[in-house]
């Protein structure tokens, strides 16, 4: 019973701590992120008309962390006059790809087929990405709306993966590794990765190696990008909740250890007595 109450108390407090900042934002600072700054600068310096690919591996489970990053980078591309090809290798990703397209049309008046294209879902994860890297025209014949891709003006400018100025990926999986292996490793096309927080440490190693031109780590990376773009959005709002959650976990660690040491001391005394 004690364990049950303790567990629900911990979970109840956690819910309050995380929800409160979402209802009433505190405005905690985001802090500098060099790897995200590098991604921002790289995209910012691409010439107008550059073709870019966004690999939208967003699913409801990871959307809280990487969807804001996808939106921020898509906005940045359109603001700089870049063309965007949206692809995905997870079934859920297609919903977010369509959503991204709608957002670009609504906010920037982007024209389908000229400014952006939504490619259909291809099964096979890493193999699919490798196939796209090796022979993009062999993999895709139609777009998500079953139209012949050759009828779309933007597609006629694409013959191979080397026609992309940058490939960015939004993922909670190993896509960063796959980008590095198949797109950067084989064809030296610059890559940017946006990952969930837990995957940030290992993605960071690829950035440090120079295999990624930039990266966005979790909500923090997305929030930094939003602020850099001057368009605070979902990530900036979520940052407060994430910060509050981190602080709560730290307090919990502290209390857990104090109670652990206290119980050990009492046990020691009892056994001495």
């Amino acid at each position: 019973m004690y364990k049950f109450t303790q567990q629900w108390l911990i979970w109840g407090l956690l819910s309050i701590v995380v929800l409160l900042p979402l209802v009433k934002p505190i405005g905690l600072p985001v802090g500098y992120a060099a790897e995200t700054e590098a991604a921002f600068k790289f995209i910012d310096n691409l010439p107008k008309g550059s073709i870019t690919m966004m690999v939208c591996e967003v699913a409801p489970s990871n959307a809280g962390e990487i969807w804001p990053a996808a939106i921020a980078i898509a906005r940045h591309h359109l603001e700089k006059g870049h063309k965007v090809v949206i692809s995905t290798f997870i079934p859920d990703g297609i919903m977010y790809s369509l959503e991204l397209g709608k957002l670009l049309e609504k906010e920037y008046g982007a024209k389908y087929g000229e400014d952006y294209i939504v490619l259909p879902y291809v099964a096979g994860r890493e193999t699919a990405l490798a196939a796209v890297a090796d022979n993009i025209r062999g993999v895709y014949k139609e777009d998500q709306f079953k139209q012949d891709l050759n009828n779309l003006p933007l597609w006629t400018r694409i013959q191979s993966i080397k026609d992309f100025a940058v490939v960015s990926c939004y993922t909670s999986s190993d896509d960063t590794w796959w980008l590095v292996r198949h797109i950067w490793g084989k064809y030296q096309v610059p890559c940017i990765s946006s990952t969930v927080s837990v995957a940030t440490p290992d993605s960071l190693t690829y950035y440090k190696n120079g295999q990624l031109v930039g990266m966005l780590g979790g909500v923090r990376g997305a929030a930094y990008y939003e602020q850099r773009l001057g368009k605070p959005g979902m990530a900036t709002k979520s940052m407060d909740a994430q910060s509050a959650g981190h602080i709560y976990l730290l307090v919990l660690m502290l209390i857990g250890n104090v109670s652990y040491w206290y119980s050990r001391r009492s046990q020691g005394r009892r056994s001495e007595g």
Binding site: R220, M239, L250
Partner: peptide, 10 residues
């Protein structure tokens, strides 16, 4: 964890 949030800098 502290380094990832702004409050760490504070």
């Amino acid at each position: 964890m502290l380094g990832q949030i702004g409050i760490g800098t504070a």
